[in-house]
Design a protein around this nucleic acid. Sequence first.
DNA 1: ATTATCTATAGATCTATAGATAATGC
DNA 2: ATTATCTATAGATCTATAGATAATGC
Lengths: 191, 191
Amino acid sequence: MRYSQEHNEETRDRILAVASRLFREEGIAAVGLAKIMTDAGLTVGTFYTHFKSKEALVREALRRSLVARSECLKHALRTGDLEKAVRGYLSPEHRDQPGVGCPTAALGPEVPRHPRATRQAYSSALDLSLDSWAEAMTIRTGKKVGRAEAAAFVGLLAGTLQIARAVPDHAESAAILEAGARAALRLARKE
Amino acid sequence: MRYSQEHNEETRDRILAVASRLFREEGIAAVGLAKIMTDAGLTVGTFYTHFKSKEALVREALRRSLVARSECLKHALRTGDLEKAVRGYLSPEHRDQPGVGCPTAALGPEVPRHPRATRQAYSSALDLSLDSWAEAMTIRTGKKVGRAEAAAFVGLLAGTLQIARAVPDHAESAAILEAGARAALRLARKE
DNA sequence: ATTATCTATAGATCTATAGATAATGC
DNA sequence: ATTATCTATAGATCTATAGATAATGC
């Protein structure tokens, strides 16, 4: 059947939204197209009308979730300060909601296993967040903070969140989040 | 056929060695038993003589690779100092050899998607490294450093390595490793 | 006339099991 | 007699494609 361009864009968008959530929840390799399409209210055969391949979907879903997170971060930094953003990142809520959380924390090790185009998309979309963190850190420390330094800062946040997610003991997990926040704020402190 | 107990232990050990490398290189979900068994010089049918399920293999392989890494870390701390251990962790060699590297950097986000027994095995084997880092940090800073604080430290190392692996640009990747090492050493400094 | 969707399917792969085989531990 | 290994296969799933259908954009 024929549909309006608007309908088609909405469908594509719905597939992307479902995929970006499922990938973060279950991992890219572990999620099949059938599950994504079913969750989007379609059958698997329709997938290739909207995307060239699963890899093309991965690339777009990564980009989409990274952009969304950078908007979220910008909002947190606009309405609060760096400490608030750090506490939000290393919160029990973020730990328990990987599907709408940071793509690096959910998929970090999977990215390098994908083709260069996917890594490129990841890297350039991550830069949006890195630049926001770098700016907030520059303001806070009074010294110019660059992208690489911001990447290490995000590395601390994402790596700590991963460990807090992996550790089964509740008290330990909470202590790790707290220690991560203290470490992050120490890195963002005036020397 | 019947084999000696020694032969059987060697076979099981070979399967574990192959699996712990492949899991780190390609991800747990992406590696099939057939590939593991072929690499170990066996056919897939033999797998279930040695392990109850793929999940049992995952649990053991995680434990094995975490123990090996903690031994590696202990050696680095015995023959050098914390700075040497940090530089080794955030080195181009470690970045380019995930198959023999840190399991947290290679598999961090996958662990929480596995059953509690697997997360338990991960957590208790990770403690070996956390205790070593905590001890080295205690000595260096002169203040008692606990496991949670060490977990945030490992989070910084693992998260930064993941980003350095994901970023396709060589110079950027190298700069991220360097920034990560500086940040780690700052966290391990006397206040 | 176009085309998004559906059903159906190809061909590969996944985890797990069954049954035959043959070498050797106890 | 035991049992590690092999071959074969079950049944589910994976990505991707083919062809029919039917609603509607241009």
